[in-house]
């Protein structure tokens, strides 16, 4: 049994460095500790200037995503014991600009998320007096998997297409668009189609499949995108064969 484990933590302090360097920290090894516990230990005891994001430490808030030994992970759900004897290399999420140390700039993702209109769109709102929009368990099950997304951006850090082309809308936003498209209460599919059917939308995806493997919530964005491609292609042929059928 080892007593300590070494973390190689990426440091980037824009006022003193032009590119990130690694700093080694020796932390106590505890088999119940996750990488985030180790980072908290560093911040509390060794170097209070270390910057990173975290909140719930239970896989719900989606703010502690980082690269752990080259793989995008929620650090609150990644145990130190998996990497014995170490060292463990902790870096900010790949493919995003780094603001400081382990914190990335996420405006790009936030804009993309908003652009796909991830909310229920109604052509006509029903008055409150008529009650809620009901849904059967089967209708819920249809999109439930895609609704588990916690916006942790781990799928973006796994996606080489996003890394190579930042115009690509990316896995989480596309999966969430599909989540609302498949919701029986939603009527916004046509409204989302223009954006999603661009090259930077679903067609940019080459089905690498890494987003799905990396997702801590089993959302399967890659599946969502391919399903949407199939649907969009079917619609395309329909509108081609029956142009009068288009609204």
């Amino acid at each position: 049994m080892i007593d300590t484990i070494t973390l190689e933590v990426a440091r980037y302090r824009p006022e003193q460095e032009t590119e990130p360097t690694f700093e080694r920290f020796e932390v106590p090894f505890n088999k119940d500790w996750v990488v985030l516990d180790a980072l908290n230990y560093i911040k509390d005891r060794l170097d209070g200037s270390l910057s990173y994001r975290w909140s719930c430490r239970m896989g719900v808030c989606g703010s502690c995503g980082m690269m752990v030994n080259g793989e995008p992970k929620l650090t609150c759900a990644t145990f130190l014991s998996k990497y014995v004897p170490g060292p463990i290399r902790v870096e900010p999420l790949r493919y995003f600009p780094v603001v400081r140390d382990l914190a990335v700039e996420m405006t790009d993702f936030m804009d993309k998320l908003k652009s796909v209109k991830p909310w229920i769109i109604r052509q006509e709102e029903r008055p409150l007096s008529e009650g809620e929009y009901l849904q059967t368990p089967v209708q819920l099950d249809n999109y439930k998997q895609f609704s588990m997304c916690i916006n942790c951006m781990i799928c973006y850090a796994a996606c080489p297409v996003y890394g190579l082309d930042h115009h690509f809308i990316g896995p989480a936003a596309l999966a969430l668009a599909q989540r609302y498209n498949m919701d029986s209460r939603d009527q916004g599919t046509d409204e989302r189609l223009d954006l999603l059917s661009q090259h930077e939308g679903i067609w940019g995806c080459t089905f690498v499949g890494e987003c799905t493997k990396a997702c801590p919530k089993n959302v399967d964005p890659a599946g969502a995108i391919q399903q949407y491609k199939l649907k969009a292609a079917t619609e395309w042929f329909k509108s081609f064969l029956m142009p009068w059928g288009r609204k």
């Binding site: 006022e15 790949r94 600009p97 780094v98 700039e105 652009s115 080489p160």
Partner: peptide, 23 residues
């Protein structure tokens, strides 16, 4: 996609790693 990096537009000191050709 429209670039709308509101408050961050003039932030000069981000570090962005270029993706290697041999990714």
């Amino acid at each position: 996609m429209k670039e709308t990096h509101n408050y961050t537009l003039y932030h000069p000191k981000w570090y962005r790693e270029r993706v290697s050709t041999y990714w």
